[in-house]
Amino acid sequence: MTLFTLISMANAKNYFKTHDDMCDGTQTIQCTNDFNTVRNLQIALNRDKHINAKLKVDGRWGEKTKEAVIAFQTYYGLTHTDGWVGKETKSKLDKISKNIKFPKDKQVKHVKLMKYNNYADFRKHTNLRKSYSIYEDKKLLSKANGRNTKLKVDISEQRIRLYVDDKVALCAPCTTGAKRKLEPNTGIIRNQSTPKGTFCIKEKIADKRSTIFGKMYRGKKLVYKGDRRKYKGKKAKYVGASLKNWMRLTSGGIGLHASKYVKRYPGSNGCIRLPYKVSKTIFNKVRKGTPVSIVN
């Protein structure tokens, strides 16, 4: 896209739709993160009073900008809350920023993306406890056959690692069980910590529905949301919550699955929540019997 086009579109109604995606730079993710679009993204996020972003408007894609994007995606209930500014997020940004007059675009070089030579390099440049950054070694992942894979979940870092031939092929954020979890329907705070220990994948279901957590409907009206075992109302239809790329670890219902609610602190009911793309990769690379260690 030429500078002239960028300038002419700077104050257009569909500004973000006309520009490339914005995202983290890794070995497997390619995004230009142009100065102008990142700067205008920061302006739009700062103007949204729902997320209180308070970003420095410097046109540089970084961890704080990504965290603000995740807060934005979470608040508006977007499909993915992974910090990737894609089609859906750009569409929502256009809706909330239609009255913003962005500054004229500047002709500057694209912001260089961080490139990681290996996992050790990724660790050196990443705050694993706070960052949403994902490390992938595509070459190593291509060698995964189920028999040579294992998983490790670190509760203290809220990170999951997929090993192939005992080498880290993927490292990504996850969300484990909360020590103090409030049940909205009962008002009781319970310990829902993810159990530590060594397990193995007992079951794999690409599109599972929860048998415990979900919604109750009477006709088309939602009458209850939460643990169906605690529902005390009249007879209603139960629809289980979606658990994409489900990988069971215990007979008690603990497992790994995709979720749009992946935070940098424990917050689940015991299961291990994974970003959708991460859950899909892991689901495709492991098999029933793959060992999973959960440590703190």
Results as ranks from 00 to 15, higher is better:
234 K>D: 15
275 P>M: 00
224 Y>I: 02
262 V>N: 07
231 Y>C: 05
222 L>H: 04
223 V>R: 01
238 Y>W: 10
235 K>G: 14
272 I>D: 06
250 T>N: 10
241 A>E: 12
257 H>I: 02
272 I>A: 02
230 K>N: 11
230 K>P: 07
225 K>G: 03
234 K>N: 15
270 G>F: 09
270 G>Y: 07
261 Y>H: 08
267 G>R: 05
238 Y>A: 07
227 D>S: 04
269 N>P: 01
259 S>C: 13
243 L>F: 00
262 V>H: 12
230 K>D: 15
218 R>M: 10
243 L>R: 07
237 K>Q: 12
252 G>E: 05
240 G>L: 01
250 T>E: 08
234 K>A: 15
232 K>A: 12
236 A>N: 02
225 K>Y: 11
222 L>Y: 09
259 S>V: 04
235 K>F: 13
249 L>A: 02
239 V>D: 14
251 S>L: 12
261 Y>I: 04
226 G>I: 03
269 N>D: 10
216 M>E: 08
223 V>Y: 03
217 Y>K: 03
228 R>Y: 14
238 Y>E: 01
261 Y>L: 09
245 N>F: 10
233 G>S: 05
264 R>V: 08
255 G>T: 09
228 R>F: 04
232 K>D: 13
234 K>T: 15
223 V>T: 07
259 S>W: 12
245 N>M: 06
267 G>S: 03
257 H>L: 00
241 A>D: 14
260 K>S: 06
223 V>D: 00
246 W>P: 06
225 K>A: 11
275 P>E: 05
229 R>E: 12
228 R>S: 00
220 K>S: 11
219 G>T: 08
245 N>Y: 13
266 P>R: 04
276 Y>T: 04
229 R>M: 11
220 K>I: 13
247 M>H: 05
221 K>P: 09
272 I>P: 01
221 K>N: 08
232 K>R: 15
251 S>K: 08
220 K>M: 05
239 V>F: 10
273 R>W: 00
253 G>M: 02
219 G>H: 08
238 Y>D: 01
218 R>L: 12
222 L>C: 09
270 G>T: 04
273 R>T: 00
273 R>H: 08
